[in-house]
Amino acid sequence: MYAFEIETPSTVQDAVAALKSEGAQALGGGHTLIPTLKSRLAAPEKLVALSGIDEIKGVRMGDDSRLCIGGGTTHATVAAEAAGHYPGLARLASLIGDPAVRNRGTIGGSLANNDPSACYPAGTLASGATIVTNAREIAADDFFQGMFTTALDEGEIITEVKFPIPEKSFYAKMLQPASRFPLTAVFVAKFADGVRVAVTGASESGVFRWAEAEAALSSDFSKAAVDALSAPPADGMIGDIHGTPEYRAHLVKVMTGRAVENAA
């Protein structure tokens, strides 16, 4: 790798200050960023490691019955500690990558990167979660702005994510076994006032809500309601060696049906 320096702040305030310098980049668990540095797809002059900031780690229930997860919390911790509060989200975390990845990778890192095939964007968008940063709160519906693009400003750090807890939920992931990312995955969350359906791994624009399925499931939460829908258009879906746009569009419908069948 090329030479760079690493800063290790222990507070959000110090991290924000360190990120103000030219060419600085935040480092979460590093399981996307470090391979990116090795291949020189990115070459920041300075990394600001967030792993030493204890105030952005942990899982707790908020006063308003939302599940609050610190931005620096690893997938393994979410899988273990969210299970009693929000089993659908804990299961999503338990399916990311592999055990060693889950021990290092963080929810804040995943959301800030917004890989079009990452798992957390689906759970976050389907939950209607709120992303809290050092500067403000951002609704999930406003946060995801396309492939690898979010509402975050330069140097802004995700400190916490607040999840409303649905009555029922499930994350149905069609695994791409080499990368362990989803080929396409769907998170369905059934709330008292309606159903939210978020899809990852399918669209060239990154995670999105499937409005037709949400409308159908809000009036009839059943697999039959999904079966009666047409798959979303293949136009704009990802096409690569693993699957065509048409295949991914088809998977959106199949995985939505599986998520509804298994929702608990």
Partner: peptide, 25 residues
């Protein structure tokens, strides 16, 4: 590239890919 796991060691008791972890951290 953090895929194969040949480099797994334990850091504070947790399985960790040592090819995707900085020594200084």
């Amino acid at each position: 590239t953090s895929q194969c796991g040949a480099c797994v060691v334990h850091v504070n008791g947790e399985a960790t890919k040592s090819c995707t972890t900085f020594a200084s951290l």
